[in-house]
Structures are given as structure tokens and as C-alpha cells.
Design a protein around this nucleic acid. Sequence first.
DNA 1: CCGGAATGAAGAT
DNA 2: TCTTCCTTCCGGA
Length: 278
Amino acid sequence: MPEGHTIHALAGRVEDAFAGTPVRFSSPQGRFAESAAALDGARVESAEAHGKHLAIHVEGEQVVHVHLGLFGRFGVRQHRRVDRGEPPTDLPVAGQVRMRMVNRTHVGDLRGPIVCELVTPAEWREVRAGLGADPLRDDRLPDAVRDRLARTRRAIGAVLMDQSLVAGVGNVYRAELLHRHELDPHTPARDVPAGVVTAIWDDLVRLMPLGVRTGRILVSDSDVERAEFLIAKGGTGRVRPHYAVYRRHGKPCPRCGETVVKETMAGRNLFRCPGCQH
DNA sequence: CCGGAATGAAGAT
DNA sequence: TCTTCCTTCCGGA
């Protein structure tokens, strides 16, 4: 799950749960213990996401920088020990919790992150400076990024995953977006017509917010329609996603019937339909 | 119980 | 291009 939509949703949940309140920080697993001690009891101000990176701003010019990596999770939930005094310190811990945040109403448990570090606001700005355009922050593809895409011979499949160009797109969105636009991932980026680049970007800008909202990567037209219909009726829109190619190797492409293949690109699993992606 | 795989990315070679 | 790290879950023995 951790592609950009997950992190943006998480930023919202962290902010709703903790912003404006003093928070107990701890590190049951131990590897964030020193920083947790420095943060403990401080007031959380806000949380924000850029691509797959999360920043939790804490009073005293402190920023917790988190990246979930491939299998990190950050579960935020209400706890049952709501009282008028201190946040409870005896909530049960399950598994390896790198960082725990607790206030009077909520607990957040971070497991398996690739990054969990206490940094300064300036250091967080540096992280952001190294990240490309985020479809969840920028409605329009910045010209600087468009120019770089128009110039590079690197494969469009690799470029879409390059966080310094496009921030937040991961393996699932990449596979499905390239299939939606009938594009072979191996096509050099500079050979992709400008109109197609724009169409892919606009698609991301439309689809990723639905991912934030539902917690699912919804990309097929029928899933999207169904989720939007359910949301309009007051539901969560949590439709079970149907992918065209992602992890569907050996199965027929829903558009052309050709068998979906799995290969490796830049060390990552790549799924595509040899029949209709050119 | 063990091995493998997973939506990620840095660092070494 | 490769190895390594982070943690959980699932299938096969």
C-alpha cells in the first residue's frame, strides 16, 4: 500500500488525531528511543506529505521525517483509555513498533519504516527539494519536469518511478497508468508524445485523490465509477480494486486478451501487456 | 517452522 | 546492476 496516496492519507490522519495536542513519544522497539525522548510531551503542530515522504511538525523546530519504504505501516487509531488526565502509557504493544505516539484520544504505531528520524525544518526542506512533482500537490505538470521528460532517453516506466521527477507514484500506479495509456514501459520518455504525457499526468491528478480517500489504488473505470457512486451515497468507496496488469502475469489482459507478462526493470517487478502496450 | 515475497530506496561495485 | 535493510504474512513442509 505505501505509494503516495497512502502517505497523504496518513498525514491527514496524523493531523486529525494529534495536531494541537501534547503527545507522548516512545520507541518500544528501541531504535528511535533517543529522539522519542527529546520529543516526548511536545505539542504536535501539523503533518504533511510530499510524495512518499511524511513530515510531522512538532513544537520546538522539530520535524519527524518518516518514509515507509516497501513494507512500513503507520496505524493511527482511537484508544479506549480516554480520560481527562495524562495520555495512557500502558497500551499494549504488538510487534515491532519503532515509534509510538499517544495523546488522550489516539495512538499511532509506526512499524518497519525505511526512515524514521528527527530532523530540523531546514533538513526537511532539503528532502522536499530533492523530490519531483507530486500529483497530489500539483494539478499541473511543472514545465521543468515536462522538459526533463522530453529530453531523457530513459524508459518511461523507470522515469515514472523516479521520485526526483514524479513524487508519489509507485509500482502499482506505474503499471496501471501505462496500461491505461497503452504505453510500453520500455518506450524512451522523450519518444512519448507531449499529449500522452499530459494525459498520464491528468489521470494521476484525478485518480490519486480517490486513492487517498478510499485507501485503495482504484484505476479501472468501473472501480472508479463504483467508488464515486458509493461516496456520493455517503459510503467509504472502499471497492476491491481490479488491476489490468499489476501482478496479473499469466492472465489475459482485460482489454485485448493477450497474456500479461512480468519482467524486471531497474530492480523492480514490471507488469505489462505485450498485446496493447506499444 | 522456514522460505519467500512485497506497493521502496540507498549504498556499494 | 547488485546487495542490503526495514517487517509482516502466507504457503508449504
